[in-house]
Design a protein around this nucleic acid. Sequence first.
DNA 1: GCCGCCATCGGCCGATCGGCCGATGGCGAC
DNA 2: GTCGCCATCGGCCGATCGGCCGATGGCGGC
Lengths: 217, 217
Amino acid sequence: MIRVLIADDQEMVRMGFRMILDAQDDIEVVADVPDGISAVSKARELRPDVCLLDIRMPGLDGLEVTRQLAGPEVADPLKVVVVTTFDLDEYVHTALRNGASGFLLKDAGPALLIEAVRAADRGDALVSPQITVRLLKHFDGGTIAKREAPAPSEPLTAREMDVVKAAARGLTNTEIGAELFLSLSTVKTHLASVQGKVGARNRVEIAAWAWRSGVVD
Amino acid sequence: MIRVLIADDQEMVRMGFRMILDAQDDIEVVADVPDGISAVSKARELRPDVCLLDIRMPGLDGLEVTRQLAGPEVADPLKVVVVTTFDLDEYVHTALRNGASGFLLKDAGPALLIEAVRAADRGDALVSPQITVRLLKHFDGGTIAKREAPAPSEPLTAREMDVVKAAARGLTNTEIGAELFLSLSTVKTHLASVQGKVGARNRVEIAAWAWRSGVVD
DNA sequence: GCCGCCATCGGCCGATCGGCCGATGGCGAC
DNA sequence: GTCGCCATCGGCCGATCGGCCGATGGCGGC
């Protein structure tokens, strides 16, 4: 279940989002709030998997809420998808700089909303096509990543991902176990499996793979 | 009606795409072809609104077909969405430079496929979330969503840098020694010093620091 | 000349990792 | 129901790491 928090000052919008998302059997809306202050406090209290934030809100706006929940200096960032009516480059830039895992225009349609939530939960990022086309223009002449992280021979399981992320942060196996409520043996089993799949010789190479493939940042 | 051409060497994939897209009442698949040569000729003959191209195809591959149908030097470019199983940065880079209006991984699911076609038809671009998240990292010089590495309390010496770079690649202390013509003891001394300076608890944290601070990539 | 910093090397020891064997239970596919 | 995959856990052991002590020599500044 992907647990979602919705923040938007318009009640009709909140209701609409809730109906769309709750209709999915892998998504559960755990709260909806009408302003930025409540968004921050509710998010910290409930720690949802994904926060859906409008930009125009009384008090704190969605961009500032994003910074406080997902910004570069936040210890344990949440996943944030920013939603707005206004297609301004400035908004997009700020949102993404503040750690957003997605940027959607409200005219995007339900399918993209759902996919954006799922993508954010997976650690990916979905950006509205109207915006993407403009972002891509900036790439012309620019550099796209050359570092290639070789794909794993087999896909990692969800649990393996959890363990990898923790390991890449520098936690020891015992610490990972404590964080994920696993025994030392289980952590070692998962890491050994990942090691084989991504072709790493030790945990630093696992971390390097995680880094390059965007699993962690 | 959005008129779509499908090019993929696997018949099952073509059928799958056709079923998904034909089920939409605003989309119509006008042709499907199994190789790059036919893709180019059919596309020029039928002039579909959107072309869905696999990369791996006999004859011309999808990236070359993209260039011929949508490249910067083409007079009246068609809209192209590139679809592939393989998540390689090089593919993404080439496809987008060759004028693609979208890049999808085959594991993306029907919803994104449909939205990618609609977006391309509108002149927008949809990119798979897994890829978007990596694109964003390198956008704007990597300032977006990048977590800053705390500066070391004291600057690292040149030799320490050498050792850190090797360690971040996943080499063991013995291997680092062999590479830099140092004894095991010396490598350990340097790494211990770095560990103190950057506030790391183990070599993975040293590696993480190296990545975030741009010492290595 | 002396002092500080750097680079180089050594020994010792406990903690951690990595490789290898094994086992159980759940759960979905065929 | 059986098979396979996944998640969970255990033991054993050698390799490696990390922490702590030490040492020598070079080189530049005061």
